[in-house]
Design a protein around this nucleic acid. Structure first.
Lengths: 195, 195
DNA sequence: AGAAGAAATTAACCCAGGTTAATTTTGAGA
DNA sequence: TCTCAAAATTAACCTGGGTTAATTTCTTCT
């Protein structure tokens, strides 16, 4: 695996946002980990203390309730930072796991030493704020659709938002993203077909 | 209205988080606005370009769907920064309005000039990141309860989280926070009473 | 290609919450 | 204190999605 290439990709991801980051701290402690389709980067309940960067591939964020039902919170496509902001920051266990939807290449850095060094860097802080803002906006938009739209509308939106996933991942996972059962999704699809 | 006092309160809010902020930029352009119970700080659809600090009082974030149904996204209690992160950052219209649940005292600064000056300040950026993290964590927790819990459970959680609001605000607003109708909430309350 | 397990569909039944509307309670202003 | 409008309750009925279970595809492995 070409370490230099991955690192360059990670830096490029920040650079293209137009922030001026001092990368001198970035030389060591990077870790490369390929994960295969279906495998988990980390499981719900694990402690997460690394910053993950999804170099290639797609993943989903999935949480499981006490009664064993799984819920897909969101999907993420490379190149992107992934992970549990909440768990990493608070140093607590993750409320969800991250599962690969296809073979992925992921690089990571130990969060705390990374952040402690990078917080010296104004460019990084701005970039980090910007990143938080982006995921926050996404959450706000998802919340609003959740309350206002029917499951059918949400399914149609999903098809528009993730055309590449629509026929690629199991319907169970789509259903769990819409927060309905596979049975209900099947009914909705049939209803739509008849029109 | 004691301007110096309000400004001190605002600074204290940041200072107590332990960040070292250079306040030299803060001298002018502060605006004080009292709003009375029931009034809106801003309405959904308005452009928001100020940073608001709720000095005293309580507010709710409320959005209205095309079909005229209102949904209370969350409540906020002073002292706190309030506003639409999304709208302020993107410079777009707010997806929700902010309404006073009681008489409030609010101070504000023009966001863009504020942020442009403050981004020079590492202490501020860290503080801002921290703030984003906090509201993000809250959103993540609310999302998870939404999917996993029944309306009854969510009502009971509400009573624990906001004991001071439970008997103070109209039930319609509580219902809209739980994302059910007032009728459904009434039924839930009755069901609980019978036990 | 065949077997076995997983995923998806279909059907039957149930229930929480929505809808509408009538009735009672609450509360703010004269 | 009385009045009138808004808020809350209650009742009757409806519907979308949950649940369970039987049946039919898809996959994948040998």
């Amino acid at each position: 695996m070409d370490k230099a290439l991955l690192e360059a990709s990670f830096k490029h991801y920040f650079d293209r946002m137009g922030y001026d980051i001092d990368w001198q701290y970035f030389t060591q402690s990077m870790q490369i980990q390929p994960i295969r389709k279906g495998e988990f980067l980390f499981q719900q309940g694990e402690k997460v203390d690394r910053l993950y960067f999804l170099h290639t591939g797609q993943v989903r964020y999935v949480s499981v309730s006490e009664t064993g039902k799984e819920y897909t919170q969101s999907f993420a496509k490379s190149p992107r930072i992934i992970g549990s902001t909440r768990a990493t920051i608070k140093g607590t266990k993750a409320l969800f796991g991250i599962q690969a939807l296809e073979d992925c290449m992921i690089i990571s850095y130990p969060w705390h030493s990374f952040f402690n060094e990078m917080r010296q860097d104004k460019g990084f802080l701005e970039c980090y704020c910007h990143f938080m803002e982006q995921i926050f906006i996404l959450k706000e938009e998802k919340e609003s659709s959740f309350v206002k739209d029917s499951a059918e509308k949400r399914y149609l939106d999903f098809c528009v938002d993730y055309p590449e996933l629509k026929d690629k991942i199991p319907q169970q996972q789509i259903a769990s993203y819409l927060s309905i059962t596979p049975v209900a999704l099947s009914r909705i699809r049939q209803r739509l077909k008849r029109i």
